[in-house]
């Protein structure tokens, strides 16, 4: 363990802002990279269901 206390861990010897900002940006970009394909899949599936229902009603 490189830190003596939790406040030491947050402060990172005065570099806390830089370190935590980097990790926060990484988390945001990772979440975007998972959420956007999941949303796209939901949208695609509901579009397909609607189209198939329309075709069933037309015939």
């Amino acid at each position: 363990m490189s830190f003596d206390s939790f406040s030491d861990f947050l402060a990172m010897d005065g570099h806390g802002l830089y370190v935590w900002m980097s990790y926060a940006i990484a988390v945001v970009l990772f979440v975007i990279n998972v959420v956007s394909p999941v949303m796209r899949r939901k949208q695609l599936v509901s579009e397909l269901i609607r189209r198939m229902r329309r075709e069933k009603n037309a015939s």
Binding site: M1, S2, F3, F9, M12, D13, G14, H15, G16, Y18, V19, S22, Y23, A26
Partner: peptide, 25 residues
Amino acid sequence: GAVWALLFAPADYQQGNSFRIIYIH
């Protein structure tokens, strides 16, 4: 990796803890 990088990796003797950014960069 993130826990190891943030808590257990030693600080750099020149750059101190800002060096931990390397684990994302």
